[in-house]
Amino acid sequence: MSRPAPIPTAHYFGCEHGAGHYLFAPRMASAAWNPFEYLDAKLAPKDPAQRQFVAQAWRLYGYSPAGWGGASALSWWDRSVDRRKGSNSIIFAPGLTVTAENLVVLLERFFPTVAARLPHPLEILPGFQELRK
């Protein structure tokens, strides 16, 4: 069986050093475009208590940039930088077959300062939710 090609990139949506959510390319480089902005807080687990660092995995159909063929995402409530209620983080990767565990690996590889803020292991809810545009 052949191995799938490695995922060349990922993007992070959330906080860097202070309040405010932004989209970042690898190594926290500013992303010039943001097709994911309208998903802010919509992908975090549907938990009235907004338990921090409990992640939900997603398959996003029609919500990604051209060439991605859809996106996989992992989102969690995250008040480690921005203490306001509703603060969340999301890691996005191209394609619809990336596992939740591999999304964590991509977060660690491309956004190590964000990964360092998380408990290890990150609690990930079972299964993937789907969102279609």
Rank of each mutant, 00 (worst) to 15 (best):
Thr9His: 14
Leu122Arg: 05
Ala93Thr: 02
Ile90Gln: 12
Gly95Leu: 07
Ala19Val: 06
Arg51Trp: 03
Ser2Val: 12
Gly69His: 09
Ala100Phe: 02
Gly67Ala: 01
Trp76Ile: 09
Arg84Gly: 01
Leu107Val: 05
Arg27Gln: 11
Arg59His: 14
Pro121Gly: 10
Ser30Gly: 00
Gln56Gly: 08
Gly70Trp: 12
Trp68Val: 01
Asn102Met: 10
Ala100Cys: 04
Ala29Glu: 11
Phe36Gly: 09
Ala25Asp: 15
Ala66Pro: 00
Gln56Asp: 10
Gly127Tyr: 02
Pro6Ala: 13
Thr99Asp: 02
Val104Ala: 09
Leu107Arg: 06
Tyr22Val: 08
Ile124Ala: 03
Ala93Ser: 13
Gln56Pro: 08
Arg109Glu: 15
Cys15Lys: 08
Phe92Pro: 04
Tyr63Lys: 00
Pro119Leu: 05
Ala93Phe: 01
Glu123Ser: 13
Ile91Pro: 00
Ala31Asp: 08
Ser30Cys: 01
Ala115Trp: 15
Gly14Glu: 13
Arg79Tyr: 02
Arg79His: 01
Glu108Phe: 03
Phe92Asp: 04
Ala31Lys: 06
Gly95Val: 04
Leu60Met: 02
Tyr61Pro: 00
Ala55Glu: 06
Glu101Asp: 14
Phe128Thr: 12
Ala5Cys: 13
Arg3Ile: 08
Arg117Ala: 10
Gln56Thr: 08
Tyr63Gly: 00
Leu131Met: 15
Ile7Gln: 08
Phe24Arg: 05
Ser2Thr: 12
Ala116Glu: 15
Met1His: 06
Gly70Met: 09
Arg84Met: 03
Val114Glu: 15
Pro6Asn: 11
Pro26Leu: 04
Gly69Asn: 11
Pro112His: 15
Gln52Cys: 07
Gly14Leu: 13
Gly127Arg: 00
Met28Thr: 00
Arg84Val: 04
Gln56Met: 11
Ser80Lys: 10
Asn102Phe: 13
Tyr22Thr: 09
Lys85Phe: 04
Leu39Ile: 09
Ser30Phe: 07
Phe24Ala: 03
Val54Ser: 11
Pro126Leu: 10
Ala116Ser: 14
Lys85Gln: 07
Ala41Phe: 09
Thr113Cys: 11
Ser80Ile: 10
Ala57Cys: 13
Lys85Ser: 08
Pro6Gly: 12
Thr97Phe: 06
Lys42Gln: 15
Pro48Val: 04
Thr99Tyr: 01
Gly18Ser: 13
Gly86Phe: 02
Ala49Glu: 10
Lys133Tyr: 13
Ala25Trp: 00
Asp40Cys: 14
Pro26Ile: 05
Thr97Gln: 11
Val54Ala: 14
Pro65Val: 10
Pro45Cys: 13
Pro119Phe: 04
His120Cys: 03
Phe24Trp: 14
Asp82His: 03
Arg117Met: 07
Met28Trp: 02
Leu125Tyr: 04
Ser72Ile: 10
Arg84Asn: 09
Asn88Leu: 02
Pro126Arg: 11
Asn88His: 15
